[in-house]
Design a protein around this nucleic acid. Structure first.
Lengths: 142, 142
DNA sequence: CGGCATCCGTGCCGATACTG
DNA sequence: CAGTATCGGCACGGATGCCG
């Protein structure tokens, strides 16, 4: 799953990056990458994509799975993801209505990346908790 | 406060998510992973971490690099990242003041993941743009 | 230069009611 | 069941002013 990610051997403090820097990117607000990142990095989007990877889900199933999301936000999030071509919406013309959501192929590729993010979070949550505790202690002693 | 967060009785704290279900995680709001994800997925945090990977930067350098960020939000973002142990803040007692920000080791590991996210976005931005155009066209015809 | 405090507008988001 | 429509609170974030 983890495609041999480009390791950072020592370039954390390296200042010698050329124009070929794989991470030299446009930071302007109107940059399309930033627009998409804002969408992708959305908290609800992350959760929806994560859940849909496991299997196709109906609207209420998603709402029940995601604690704290309102019907409105789930609808909005799903519409955005559908518009971006990450999620496919299928309506079955039955009574009562049945609507299923599934990841598209594009959504599946994104899920690989998101999974890495979640995995990182799970792996390092203890370090972050410790860092927060240490920080709060430092601030308190002042 | 800093006491170990209430662990979920079920599967949340299980680090063995790799085999049977690679993406079965706790979606409850009080789940620590979700809290951290919200922070990590923040749009400004992403940009700051991305820029700091290249080299250490001063406050104003960051502000100039990140188009559209206000001084307030840069300060808030940097404080959060510092508190989470992802960014290190160094103050040089000179006049005028000089403050430098750098990624910690933990921050470097996160950057690997973020880079994957940005790379994905760059790689698929055309597909997303096409999907959006198609979606908008469908909606317009109705 | 690199903050922090304060004020205040905007828009996000939840709650509610209604439809097919 | 799966939405849309509408309203309103409040938190997020911008602008400004002051300080070490």
């Amino acid at each position: 799953m983890e495609e041999g990610t480009l390791k950072s051997p020592s370039h954390c403090d390296s200042t010698d990056y050329g124009d070929s820097d794989p991470f030299q990117w446009d930071t302007r607000e109107d940059c399309e990458v930033r627009q998409i990142l804002d969408r992708v990095a959305d908290k609800w989007s992350l959760l929806v994509i994560a859940l849909l990877e496991r299997r196709t889900l109906r609207f209420t199933e998603l709402r029940n799975e995601i604690d704290g999301i309102s019907q409105r936000m789930l609808t909005v999030t799903l519409r955005q993801l559908e518009r971006d071509g990450l999620v496919e919406r299928t309506v079955y013309p039955v009574v009562p209505p049945r609507v299923e959501y599934a990841l598209t192929d594009l959504g599946c590729t994104l899920h690989e990346t998101i999974k890495a993010l979640v995995t990182w979070t799970e792996k390092h949550q203890d370090e972050i908790a410790a860092a927060r505790a240490a920080y709060d202690r430092r601030m308190a002693t002042v």
